[in-house]
């Protein structure tokens, strides 16, 4: 309060602890950078040749060849169908998983089992799951759809479970106090609190599935990705270019749709 104490200083507490800790960390990071760049053993000649090939490839890509538009269209349609069907299937299956994976609803063993399923499901990237499902169910859209449905269910369940864990407990307590059953507590006390965000996440997932559906085809799980992979192996770069342009357009469209709908939900 008094003027004689004007020289008191204050600093925000650092994220990395004390000064020496900070210096050690910085030094370690610098040392790592030096070692790692030295260890890369970049072969300049190879990189340069790569640039040359890229120029050649780009040249052969132009102009894009849309003459096989039927094949292209069929692939795109298959991808879109895969994305939509898998999103819907995923949305259905995510509900029970999400309820089981919410700490405030499920008993401990159920919770642990559901969380384990989610962790396992998210450990493996879509492409790895797709490889597995192609082995199980053969080449084609079925494997792709199952892949995306599985990863959508797990993804949506994780997001929704987290929302359920963050609901205001008061209304839930109020519903329990009226003598409502568990299902009714969920329908009246929890669903209204999470539904808007859940819809937003679902629409984001449709968008994500559109993108994923173009990729997993490369490992033989159907859709436009399979067509794209085939065109690359046959060096039909002009057809590849046409496919890439279409994928870009589709993804952009999906993103616009997703953005548009989610903005209106709020």
């Amino acid at each position: 309060m008094s003027a004689s104490l004007a020289a008191r200083s204050w600093q925000p507490s650092s994220m990395f602890g004390g000064r020496w800790q900070r210096r050690t960390l910085l030094f370690a990071f610098a040392a790592y950078c030096v070692w790692s760049i030295g260890d890369l053993a970049i072969d300049h000649a190879r990189v340069m040749r790569g640039f040359g090939r890229a120029a050649d490839m780009l040249a052969r890509m132009w102009p894009p060849d849309f003459s096989r538009w039927e094949l292209l269209g069929r692939g795109m349609l298959e991808s879109v169908q895969m994305a939509i069907a898998s999103s819907v299937i995923g949305a259905v299956f995510c509900v029970p998983i999400a309820l089981c994976a919410a700490r405030n609803l499920a008993p401990a063993p159920v919770y642990v089992a559901a969380r384990a399923l989610i962790v396992v499901g998210r450990t493996f990237h879509e492409v790895i799951v797709a490889i597995l499902f192609v082995k199980l169910f053969g080449f084609g859209a079925v494997a792709g759809m199952l892949t995306l449905a599985f990863s959508s269910a797990v993804f949506l369940a994780k997001m929704i479970a987290e929302d359920i864990e963050n609901v205001r407990p008061g209304p839930v307590e109020a519903m329990r106090a009226t003598g409502a059953r568990f299902g009714q507590v969920v329908v009246f006390g929890i669903v209204p609190q999470v539904v808007v965000r859940a819809l937003g996440v679902f629409i984001y997932r449709i968008d994500a599935n559109l993108r994923h559906s173009t990729v997993i085809g490369i490992v033989g799980a159907g859709g436009i990705g399979q067509t794209l992979a085939a065109s690359f192996t046959r060096y039909d770069y002009d057809f590849s270019a046409a496919i890439l342009l279409c994928i870009a357009a589709l993804v952009a469209l999906g993103e616009w749709f997703s953005d548009h709908v989610r903005r209106r939900l709020r």
Binding site: R168, G170, P171, A174, M175, F188, G189, P192, Q193
Partner: peptide
């Protein structure tokens, strides 16, 4: 309840 505990939406 103190916080009313209505379901807001």
């Amino acid at each position: 309840f103190q916080e009313f505990n209505l379901v807001e939406r």
